[in-house]
Simulated scan of single mutants.
Amino acid sequence: MKVLLISNMYPSREFPSYGVFVQNTEQILLNNQFQVDRIVLQKKKTKLQKLFGYALHYTKIIWSGLTKKYDYIYVHYAAHNAAPLLLLKKLNSRVTIITNVHGSDVVPEVSSQEKFQPRVKQLLKESAKIITPSPYYMSLVKEKYEVKTPIYIFPSGGVNPDVFYPFLDRNEAFEMLKLDPNQKYIGCVSRIDVGKGWEYYLKAIAHLEEATPTFYKYLYIGSGKDEDAFHNLAEELGIKEKIIHFPLLPQTSLKYVYNAIDAFIFPTVREGESLGLVGLEAMACGTPVIGSKIGGLKDYIIEGKNGLFFQPGNEIELAEKLWFFMSSSEEYKQRLSRQAILTAHDYTINVISEKLPRIFND
């Protein structure tokens, strides 16, 4: 089967984690003897680079769709790729599209993204099949667009067990990150952008440390538009000395983070959190997740079994859950850890690799 993979997110040498799940889906198809061509856009630094990048990206989509024959055109991210694909469909009605929707495709994060919604709806209607990352997101798509197109679930390329696994010796993680092995850590991995909940993480830490000073320090791994605001708030709250900030790290380095921390905090407030793959990657390393009760997180976090929930945006409740976890017995923490590993196993590439080819062959 010959497939044209289209995405406006794809890893590069400079940004190895950017759209890595798209690369994972490509590898799954290749491993199953699919022939895959790709038209992808890698991360650009300036607005001008982005403008020219999209112009070339759209031109390639239309040209390839008109001059080459594919069994399927498989697109990740409907919002930013809908325009050229809808035009291509008009010019060549025989093209068959499978659309894999994510995050802001269905739930725009900022008002400027609302303008894409009519095209998203039209693309989903024109698609032969729709792929969503989670049961939550499938329900959201059905409810919002009322499409008759068949909808399938495939968890965003899955967790790579060759990268994410529990270390036998955690000192390796502390050494790689240059952390004190005698110190305890809680951590969060996320962009520092709107909707990611970084401010609630900081405020929860401040509430907890003011009420009951702990032996913990708090990692935050990520970069973004709100980075200055992040550091300003940490200073304003008086917790700057408690925060250890790393820039966005590649996946090969994130495994050290997940193995160094006792719990992973997932404070998102985005209804468009279609799966939350970082939470599953943390679980694969044996790290329980304390997460917002929202989006795709509700599909894999089980309260008191492999993690804990708090209401989105409620820093007081997050502080309470943090303290509950910190003050729990080692036996309880180990039980959460074991269950986290079992949960993540069901999302590993090895387990889900048969699902994507089945969707194409169905």
Score class of each variant (00 low, 15 high):
M1Y: 11
L4E: 02
L5M: 08
Y10M: 10
S12P: 07
P16D: 05
P16C: 09
G19F: 01
F21A: 12
V22T: 03
T25M: 15
Q33A: 15
Q35E: 15
V40M: 11
K43F: 01
K44Y: 11
K47C: 09
L48M: 10
L48G: 02
Q49V: 08
Q49L: 10
G53H: 03
A55R: 13
A55Q: 12
T59R: 15
I62V: 14
G65F: 00
I73N: 06
L85S: 08
K89A: 00
K90V: 10
V95P: 08
T96F: 06
T99S: 14
N100E: 11
N100P: 01
V101D: 01
H102A: 01
S104C: 06
V106C: 08
V110Q: 13
V110K: 15
F116E: 07
L124V: 09
K129Q: 02
K129C: 01
I131K: 06
T132I: 04
P133M: 07
P135A: 07
M138I: 11
L140I: 05
Y145T: 05
T149H: 08
P150M: 08
I153V: 13
F164I: 04
Y165F: 15
N171K: 13
F174S: 09
M176Y: 13
P181W: 09
G187K: 11
R191Y: 04
G195A: 07
E199K: 09
Y201F: 02
Y201W: 04
I205R: 00
Y218T: 03
Y218V: 05
G222A: 08
G222W: 10
K225I: 13
K225A: 14
D226E: 15
E227R: 11
D228K: 13
D228N: 14
N232V: 12
L233E: 07
I239H: 00
I239K: 01
I239G: 03
K240D: 11
E241L: 07
F246C: 04
S253I: 11
K255P: 02
Y256K: 08
A260C: 12
I261V: 11
D262L: 10
F266W: 02
V269W: 00
G279R: 05
L280K: 07
A284E: 10
A284V: 02
P288C: 05
Y300A: 06
Y300Q: 00
I301L: 13
E303I: 06
G304R: 01
G304D: 06
N306I: 02
L308R: 08
Q311C: 11
P312H: 06
N314K: 01
L322E: 06
F325P: 11
S329M: 01
E331F: 10
E331C: 09
K333H: 00
Q334K: 13
D346V: 10
Y347T: 00
I352W: 01
K355R: 15
P357Y: 04
P357D: 06
I359C: 02
D362I: 09
